[in-house]
């Protein structure tokens, strides 16, 4: 078991299907968890030796809010947004109109470099309909993004 998990930690989860659909109903804006180490001595040593407490599968700690923490090797929009903590960054970038998280989302959705400016601008203009309410989930955000893209002639080709 240990070895398998470790192998997964190094390899990522490019092999096989993921056990849970990422970004399930538990992964939402309202119950976002920002995971840190807890407990002072544990944290102290974990920082000193740059490891983690708990098991050997660091990088694969399971999220407590239903977000994806598998550390996948490849992304396709949905699972990118469902990575723990990513939605917060994407939201901030959309509100402002640019940023690394939004760029990464566009890359993971396969949007060509020449269309990314338009993608960002469109997301910026539709921010309040994409992040429609405070308990919106990653799934809902993604489907809102896709429906906004559908009504844009250039971006419609990607959705």
């Amino acid at each position: 078991m240990k070895k398998t998990l470790l192998a997964l930690a190094l390899v990522g989860t490019s092999f096989g299907a993921q056990a849970n659909a990422p970004g399930g109903p538990g992964c939402g804006w309202g119950n976002m968890v920002f995971e840190g180490q807890s407990g002072m001595p544990v944290h102290l040593v974990a920082t000193i030796v740059n490891g983690t407490s708990g098991n050997k599968t660091f990088g694969m700690t399971s999220g407590t809010n239903g977000c994806d923490t598998s550390g996948a090797l490849a992304y396709h929009g949905e699972n990118m947004l469902a990575q723990q903590g990513v939605m917060e960054e994407v939201a901030q970038d959309m509100a402002v109109g640019d940023g690394e998280a939004l760029t990464a989302l566009s890359v993971s959705m396969g949007i060509a470099p020449e269309d990314r400016g338009r993608f960002k601008q469109t997301m910026h203009e539709n921010f309040s309909s994409i992040f429609s309410q405070e308990d919106v989930t990653a799934d809902e955000v993604m489907s809102n993004i896709r429906s906004v893209m559908k009504s844009d002639e250039t971006l419609a080709t990607y959705s």
Binding site: V49, G51, F58
Partner: peptide, 8 residues
């Protein structure tokens, strides 16, 4: 990343 694994 190379890091130690700290038991619980």
């Amino acid at each position: 990343n190379f890091g130690a694994t700290v038991g619980g």
